[in-house]
Amino acid sequence: MDQVFEGSPKAEVRLEGRKVVRGDVVHDWGSRLQWVVKKDGQVVATPPARADHEFEHDDQTPGKYEVSLQLWKYDGYQKDKDGNFTKSKYVDISNTVSYTI
């Protein structure tokens, strides 16, 4: 039985100081949910976001930080010779918040 993931998961994130708070995921596929932290445009961390609704990135070195949520979208288990998924991938499901240190 093929697995079908329908609909578009969505979640809202907001900033409280440096702490990021997320709401529930609407139309949640139930796969891995992760924060995506970018510093000056580069991804620096992807910690898990499933267990808690709040997250605070511990790096305080100067720069512009952007945080959002991603959810794994399963679209087949195919991988290349290096083991990287060729169809399934993380997709953005939230707005992005930012702060500068």
Binding site: Q3, F5, E6, G7, P9, D28, W29, G30, S31, Y74
Partner: peptide
Amino acid sequence: DRYGRNTFG
């Protein structure tokens, strides 16, 4: 949503 919108959930 709590169960997960997938076949198993």
